[in-house]
């Protein structure tokens, strides 16, 4: 299973090529081109801002910023999972015609969306400043959060994409589960809205909740994240990633035949 990750490093040139192509291809042919990388999250933010600060007024101060802080990592997560589910089954051409390390495919989906996430971070800080909230030193925690989220997302995608090769229903099931997970994750609402008795479960059972609330703590509340859920989430992500790599390696031989 370590071999799986080591190979991923060996093939980093390939990983990077696929990622940069993906980034370039996404807005290829459109007039605004790469600008969409910033425009998309900005427009998404505008939509939520209008709905939640005009129609469904929230009692939270700087609600738009609060919501946006949780939404950005969620978009990274959900678009990685949604796009990654079919990443193996869609790339038959690569898997069956070239000697190709299959673990690069799920990884490049996470990386592509991760770079989009990183590129949208400045937008978050611009919004923060515009709301009159000056970021504090607490933002040094952000790279840690990014690392944990990368591991967790990669682990899930390894499982899902490998399973999806033989069980194609999974990609449709997953996209619906993502909607459910979105509303179960404290992004549009703060954690303390959840009734007391469910709150602990909500952050421990849902790693994305631990991650999203940590971002909110750091960027919006200027506090350090709650260590309990975050540490649990980090440990879980590492274990999951090792298990997922092992599972992926065990299926690797047959992927080319089944896809």
């Amino acid at each position: 299973m370590i071999r799986n990750l080591r190979e991923l490093y060996q093939y980093r040139a390939l990983l990077w090529s696929l990622t940069s192509r993906e980034l370039g291809a996404r807005y290829r042919g459109s007039v605004l081109g790469f600008l969409w990388t910033f425009l998309n999250p900005a427009l998404l933010m505008a939509v939520y801002a209008v709905v939640f600060s005009v129609y469904m007024r929230q009692r939270l101060e700087h609600y738009t910023l609060f919501m946006f802080v949780g939404l950005l990592p969620w978009v990274w997560f959900s678009s990685s999972i949604a796009g990654g589910a079919s990443t193996l089954s869609d790339r038959r051409d690569l898997l069956t015609k070239v000697r190709f390390p299959p673990q690069v495919l799920p990884a490049h989906v996470v990386l592509t969306n991760g770079i989009n996430f990183l590129l949208s971070l400045p937008l978050m800080f611009v919004l923060s400043l515009a709301s009159g909230v000056v970021p504090t030193w607490h933002v040094v925690v952000v790279p840690v959060l990014v690392a944990i989220q990368t591991a967790f997302t990669l682990a899930l995608i390894y499982f899902i994409s490998a399973l999806n090769v033989t069980f194609r229903d999974l990609q449709h099931i997953v996209s619906n589960l993502l909607t459910l997970a979105f509303f179960l994750t404290p992004i549009l609402y703060p954690l303390d809205v959840i009734p007391e008795q469910y709150r602990t479960m909500a952050v421990y059972a849902n790693p994305m909740a631990a991650i999203a609330t940590s971002y909110q703590r750091v960027v919006y509340e200027h506090r350090l994240p709650d260590p309990g859920p975050l540490a649990f989430c980090a440990a879980l992500s590492v274990v999951l990633l090792l298990a997922a790599s092992a599972y992926f390696s065990s299926r690797r031989e047959e992927l080319a035949e089944l896809v």
């Binding site: 040139a13 390939l14 090529s17 696929l18 192509r21 370039g24 291809a25 290829r28 042919g29 051409d93 690569l94 015609k97 070239v98 000697r99 190709f100």
Partner: peptide, 25 residues
């Protein structure tokens, strides 16, 4: 192995870009 020519070519990219990525593949 040349099992299929152009495996992994992306139609939207220029020939030059495709050569780069295909070589890496």
């Amino acid at each position: 192995a040349l099992l299929e020519l152009g495996a992994g070519f992306h139609p939207e990219f220029s020939g030059r870009e495709n050569v780069l990525i295909n070589g890496v593949i």
